[in-house]
């Protein structure tokens, strides 16, 4: 494990920028989101979770698939440099890894070249994901329900812990190791550092509420598709879609043309199963016409259908949906209700 003094962070980030396009949390109005950073001063590390999620980095809310004019179709050029992300939390990193399974490998069918999403793959290729330990998790955090925690290194290329005077950095992947080994200011940690890290981790974990055992959640959901429980769960939902918008794992999108017949662009835009128009057909027929069906779809996709296809929940417990919901729906309460429901 390596360390460098906190004051050397700008230098470390500049070092990363030699090879990478650097993304990090930054102010966006009153909120924070991941942005391409040109100088250290733009970074805002005051919040634990960014308001908007990091899927934007590899799956922008509006993305040009191609432009067209009288000369034909042109795809956007691939990025010049690979992406490095500073300031991710483990929940964010794990969500990016999940989306990668979807976009580069639908339903775990790696042999199907035509199912690969080149727009995701071009940006994701050779990326460096640096996640940071959460020293003081929020009351909305529930990553520990998913075998994770504030000091979980899973999925990171580099895992960072902020100490009192040092950043401690652990190379998890080979790529991460190499990057750290090449930074002149990085030193090896000693026993005193290890003790500080251990204390920080114990403190962080004590902030977390106890984890809920959700091992029965999938099998429970398999049995309650047409249970009246959904009326109770979904009654409050106003289908605003905010939860899906800020969710780091929601990835549904729309494809739409912008422009005229002779010149324009085909774009994809984030969309959500919360909206009535998501499934509405031109004939007027709508397979998911009422709000309850849509709430059920979102819960089922995350905690049941995705498990069928990818053997994991499509949720990392980041808690953004809990903080953003305008009618105070709390996904944790929904899960508890489902688990407690007698069939």
């Amino acid at each position: 494990m390596y360390k460098f003094k906190i004051v050397y962070l700008p230098e470390f980030l500049e070092y990363l920028q030699e090879k990478y396009t650097l993304w990090a949390p930054a102010k966006s109005g009153t909120e924070t989101e991941f942005k391409v950073i040109s100088s250290f001063a733009e970074i805002d590390q005051s919040r634990l979770n960014t308001t908007l999620n990091p899927k934007e980095i590899f799956f922008p809310r509006r993305e040009v698939l191609f432009s067209y004019d009288e000369n034909g179709i042109k795809t956007p050029p691939p990025p010049e440099k690979p992406v490095a992300v500073w300031g991710l939390r483990t929940c964010d990193t794990r969500s990016i890894r999940m989306l990668d399974e979807v976009f580069s490998n639908a339903h775990q069918m790696p042999e199907k070249e035509m199912f690969k999403d080149p727009y995701w793959i071009n940006k994701y290729a050779d990326s460096l994901l640096i996640s940071q330990a959460c020293r003081q998790p929020l009351s909305t955090c529930f990553c520990n329900w998913f075998n994770s925690g504030p000091f979980d290194e899973t999925g990171s290329d580099i895992f960072v812990i902020k100490g009192e005077v040092n950043y401690y950095l652990k190379g998890i992947s080979d790529k991460g190791q190499e990057v750290l080994a090449g930074f002149a200011k990085a030193e090896q940690t000693d026993e005193k550092d290890a003790a500080e890290i251990k204390d920080l981790q114990a403190a962080a974990e004590s902030y977390m509420s106890p984890a809920l055992d959700i091992s029965d959640l999938k099998s429970k959901l398999d049995k309650i598709w047409d249970d009246p429980l959904w009326e109770e769960i979904g009654a409050k939902c106003i289908n605003c879609g905010a939860c899906a918008y800020i969710c780091p794992t929601c990835h549904c999108f729309d494809v739409s043309d912008e422009g005229k017949a002779g010149k324009g662009k085909r774009v994809r835009l984030w969309d959500a199963c919360m909206f009535q128009l998501f499934t509405k057909e031109a004939s007027g027929h709508n397979p998911r016409s009422n709000s309850l069906n849509r709430v059920r779809q979102r819960v089922m996709h995350k905690y049941n259908y995705f498990v069928d296809n990818y053997q994991k929940f499509l949720c990392t417990g980041c808690g953004r949906c809990v903080s953003v919901c305008p009618v105070n729906m709390d996904i944790r309460e929904i899960i508890k209700k489902i688990l407690a429901h007698e069939i």
Partner: peptide, 13 residues
Amino acid sequence: CGIGKCGRCGIGS
């Protein structure tokens, strides 16, 4: 999308 990404044609898993 036609390639299992955009989520619109999901029925169950």
